[in-house]
Design a protein around this nucleic acid. Sequence first.
DNA 1: CCTACCGATCGGTAGG
DNA 2: CCTACCGATCGGTAGG
Lengths: 196, 196
Amino acid sequence: MEVAAPFSRKDKIIQQATLLFDDKGYSAASMRDLAKEVGIEAGSLYSHFKSKESILQNICFKMATEYVDSIRPILDLPFNSSEKLTLAIQSHIRVLTQDPQASSVFQQDWKNLSQPYLNEFIKMREEYEEAFRQIIAEGIKNGEFGIEDEKFVLLTILSSINWTSRWYKPDGKLKPDQIAKRLSDILIKGISTSNK
Amino acid sequence: MEVAAPFSRKDKIIQQATLLFDDKGYSAASMRDLAKEVGIEAGSLYSHFKSKESILQNICFKMATEYVDSIRPILDLPFNSSEKLTLAIQSHIRVLTQDPQASSVFQQDWKNLSQPYLNEFIKMREEYEEAFRQIIAEGIKNGEFGIEDEKFVLLTILSSINWTSRWYKPDGKLKPDQIAKRLSDILIKGISTSNK
DNA sequence: CCTACCGATCGGTAGG
DNA sequence: CCTACCGATCGGTAGG
């Protein structure tokens, strides 16, 4: 949809909007706030985006697409369920840490989307969770995971990995793959049947 | 601070504000929205609360107090660390499920508090997390938990249990204590040294 | 608890 | 991309 042209004005608007929405929340952040951060007048924002919400759409769907695209290829790999789940967690953390603020907006502000975008967004989210759930269901079936309620486990895993966006700092000690490893160590051990 | 008198007008305002803030977010919810839900005029809200924020303060500090009060007595019980952690998770889930919407506001909208309330709130939150961390640190020290990074484990546990407010339904199949049991089963197994 | 209102700020537009 | 502006709505208040 978008041609390269790194750091166009449009990119800068999205960049600053992401920081602002993450900081104050979508509703509390005004177009005048945003304009000031970008360094232009409020009215000028509308020559790049037709509405405030279209900026939010941009952020939310970019992230949703990245998440969905990152998990799909994992499903068909010739690995066992624990390995697949490890990879799924790793790629989720990689997407998230690549832009933690956008991930945070993606998680917190999607409720402000209007129809039909809201439904489309929810569908993508469900598609993503469904892929995750398949991995878990597979592991239960083949005996790797010793749990009954796959939906519950799905929620537990997603919550732990999503919360990462609230504390992750790119210049912190823990690098993305380390975070992913620690998370999958705990979570997979927690649901496994084996006692290695 | 508040005398009993069940379902005073003030209570009803808080009740409806909780639903509204949870649904639309604090910033997007207007006093006129709230007044309509309560069944009075917007201006009349100000004879019960001096500002919109004071309603938010009411919700946030009520929850913060409940959480802090619920974990304190657990620290001194003559139990091992796994048992204490199980109890801490259970009491957290009990507080949360007793009013999931208020928990959700507590988690999402506290950023809108102004000073000095914001700092006071953060201090209570830190006190709570510190108690949780103590239990984990104790378990590492006495060899029950086989992990290095207690701060990371704390975040993982808190994220899983807090996410509950986003999907819990009082009339759903899973009752609070069942949710707590499943969570602590997974999490404690995930961090334990023993292989029972 | 209502009526009637305040100044401020909101998202967005016209015309250049 | 700016200037100048729109109608709508915001949190909050005075006076009863």
